[in-house]
Simulated assay, not measured.
Amino acid sequence: MKTITTLVLFITFTMQAQLKTISYTDENQKLEGHLALPQNGLPNKAGVLVLPAWMGVDYNAKENATELAKLGYIAFVADIYGQDKRPKDTNEAGKQAGYFKTNYKEYQKRIQLALDQLVKAGANPDKIAVIGYCFGGTGAIEAARNNLNVQGVVSFHGGLGRDKERTIAPIQPKVLILHGADDFFIPETDIKAFQEEMRKANADWQMVYYADAVHAFTHKDAGNDKSKGVAYNEKAAKRSWQAMKAFFDEILK
Rank of each mutant, 00 (worst) to 15 (best):
A97C: 05
T189I: 00
E188T: 11
K174P: 04
Y133N: 09
L49H: 01
K105V: 05
F194Q: 09
H215Y: 00
P170Y: 00
M198G: 01
Y209I: 00
E165F: 08
L115M: 08
L118A: 12
K174Y: 09
G94T: 00
V150D: 11
I74E: 06
I191A: 01
A75E: 06
D225R: 04
K20V: 07
G122V: 13
A203E: 04
H34D: 10
A65K: 03
L118N: 12
G98H: 06
R145L: 07
T5Y: 05
Q117K: 11
E106Y: 09
I11C: 14
V130H: 12
L9Q: 14
I177M: 00
I251A: 12
T12W: 08
Y73F: 12
E92Y: 02
W54V: 01
N147M: 05
E106W: 07
L252V: 06
F10V: 15
K235C: 06
A237Y: 12
E188S: 07
N146L: 05
D190C: 02
K95Y: 05
L178E: 09
E67V: 03
P125R: 02
F100R: 06
V153G: 02
M244N: 08
L9E: 14
N103Y: 14
V153S: 01
I251Y: 04
L160D: 08
D89P: 08
Q112M: 05
Q195P: 02
N149L: 11
Q16H: 12
L71W: 06
A213P: 01
Y104F: 08
T21E: 13
Y104R: 10
L31H: 02
Q242C: 03
T218H: 02
N64C: 06
N40I: 07
L19T: 10
A36E: 07
N202S: 00
L51N: 11
H219S: 14
Q39F: 11
A246L: 09
A193S: 05
Y81I: 02
G137A: 00
E67L: 15
A114Y: 02
F156W: 06
Q29D: 13
E196I: 02
F184G: 10
E142R: 14
K127D: 12
D190Q: 09
G136M: 03
K105Y: 11
D212T: 03
N60D: 13
K164A: 11
A53R: 01
F156T: 10
I177C: 08
Q112I: 03
F13H: 12
G159A: 14
